[in-house]
């Protein structure tokens, strides 16, 4: 069974789809064959990958021969698509920006994650769209404890290149963006042992 990672937040706009696709791409570049399962009815991730082809899109039943499966979920806490995704995941990543609205939503999302992620699963916050030297970025350090989940040490910045990526894919990204994503991917992968490599 592939290492399954659900990317979630009950509120739209935090960067779930962007990071689902970019993290999956980063994993592929780091040598861990990853596929993306698009469980969001908006289907932005599918459209994106149709455009760029950076990452294989897993079929709806999640089958396929890859070591990692990243699941993009809808921005709805009451969605059974989210609940199902969590219940088959080893890792849940709640993506949030430092904005108060996203933080409030991520706190609500923690409760949903705790309800559906199987025992032994790992859950983390991932701070996204962090702009250096802003007041809210400074506040981010203390927020994880408040929200109720540990945060990944890597924080993803707010970058124009991420806006270009749905059209141009990984090649839209500059070196700093890529490193950031690779570091986040590495940190996520270190949470749980990957499945044995398929021959």
């Amino acid at each position: 069974m592939p290492l399954t990672i659900t990317i979630c937040n009950g509120k739209g706009g935090a960067g779930k789809t962007t990071l689902s696709v970019l993290l999956a791409t980063a994993f592929n570049h780091a040598g861990h064959a990853a596929a993306l399962l698009d469980r969001d009815p908006q289907a932005t991730a599918s459209r994106w990958l149709n455009e760029t082809g950076d990452v294989p899109v897993a079929p709806a039943d999640g089958s396929g021969d890859h070591r990692l499966l990243i699941i993009d979920t809808p921005p709805r806490l009451d969605s059974h698509l989210l609940h199902d995704a969590l219940s088959q995941s080893h890792i849940a990543i709640i993506v949030t920006s430092p904005s108060p609205a996203d933080l409030w939503s991520s706190q609500d999302t923690v409760a949903t994650v705790r309800q559906h992620l199987p025992a032994g699963g790992h859950a983390r916050l991932l701070f996204n769209q962090v702009q250096a030297r802003t007041v809210l970025a400074r506040g981010v350090d203390n927020l994880a404890a408040r929200i109720g989940l540990p945060a990944l040490k890597t924080r993803i910045g707010r970058r124009q290149t991420f806006q270009h990526a749905p059209l141009l894919g990984w090649s839209a990204l500059d070196a700093v963006s890529r490193e950031e994503l690779l570091q986040a991917a590495l940190e996520i992968a270190s949470l749980a042992p990957p499945p044995p490599a398929s021959s």
Partner: peptide
Amino acid sequence: LLAKLNQSLAPEKEAPTPTV
């Protein structure tokens, strides 16, 4: 601003009831 933000994040929240 940061103090207010921290306060707005209550330490314990009850699970959201699934609603439409």
